[in-house]
């Protein structure tokens, strides 16, 4: 965790044809190797924030951008998306809409073909990427014939093959069952932990975020309203409730116990911590 790899400097953005701001005076820094979760209601500007990082906003989706977004030292409004693609991988919530090839292997290879990776080197990268997301042996399968979770992991593999330094996942598990969700988050944690990849996850699942994220950013109405460790953010139960956001169940439990005078001290953001604390209280 050293230099900021992503830097937002007083960034405001409105989509073409609208007056309202999707982002308003956003300033933040994300360091290389961080695992950042972005929380917020629909329309809070989370997706726009993510799209800013690889330059889709403002290059592809037009609009009015003020301020400066720097990614890996590059000003995103000056570099085409295809250049930033080498640095930033992005996965969206609807994996099926991101598939365009006849087989899983070709889907993964697509980005490599665009980057001009030699044919001989491709097979290894493709099978490594598929193995990384637990889809080894799926090379010849049609992407459209996979389950939702498999498709999502394939979409992630397609991005991983390009070896980005930053992985952005925009509600990657909204179509997945609990096991599928777990798989995706475990994988992201592994990439973050083992390869030091910077991971930004836009999610509604607060339990998961509390478990994996180094930092939680809360957005509302295009602004960054909270920015801190999961412990700091999820302890602000009332403020989050005012933003209509949930807190992890463990925190909610502790909050209610505190109201009855039973709980003292920090709120536990992880279920295990809550269990330990309650256990200790019962024994005392």
């Amino acid at each position: 965790m050293s230099n900021p790899i992503i830097q937002f400097d007083d960034v405001s953005f409105s989509y073409a044809g609208t007056d309202s701001f999707a982002l308003q005076s956003v300033s933040l820094e994300i360091k290389e190797g961080e695992y950042v979760a972005i929380l917020g209601l629909n329309g809070a500007g989370k997706t726009t924030l993510g799209l800013c990082v690889n330059g889709i906003v403002p290059t592809m989706l037009g609009g009015n951008l003020t301020g400066k977004v720097t990614v890996g030292g590059l000003d995103v409004s000056e570099y085409p998306v295809r250049e930033l693609a080498k640095l930033v991988g992005i996965v969206f919530d609807n994996p099926e809409f991101q598939m365009s090839q006849m087989s899983a292997a070709e889907e993964v290879a697509l980005g490599l073909e665009h980057a001009g990776v030699p044919h001989e080197a491709m097979h290894e990268i493709v099978s490594d990427s598929l193995a990384m997301v637990g889809l080894a042996g799926f090379e010849a399968r049609s992407p459209l014939g996979l389950s939702g979770g498999q498709q999502q992991r394939l979409a992630i593999a397609a991005v991983l093959a390009m070896k980005p330094r930053i992985l952005i996942m925009d509600e990657p598990t909204s179509n997945l069952d609990p096991i599928g969700k777990q798989e995706v988050f475990d994988m992201a944690a592994k990439l973050n932990g083992e390869q030091g990849m910077t991971v930004i996850v836009i999610e509604h699942e607060v339990e998961v975020m509390a478990r994996y994220a180094d930092r939680v950013i809360v957005m509302d109405g295009g602004r960054v309203v909270m920015n801190g460790t999961p412990q700091e953010i999820f302890s602000r139960v009332d403020e989050l409730a005012a933003l209509k956001l949930r807190v992890p169940e463990a925190v909610a439990l502790a909050k209610q116990l505190e109201a009855r005078g039973v709980w003292k001290g920090d709120f536990p953001v992880r279920t295990e911590t809550a269990v330990d604390r309650v256990n200790a209280m019962l024994k005392a």
Partner: peptide, 27 residues
Amino acid sequence: IERVQQLSISLESRGFGSTGHKTSYRK
């Protein structure tokens, strides 16, 4: 239309528009 827009964003973020030499997975 929605699908195509999403796909074009997804393709672009995988370097679709790159002007350099493109290679091929299948030979």
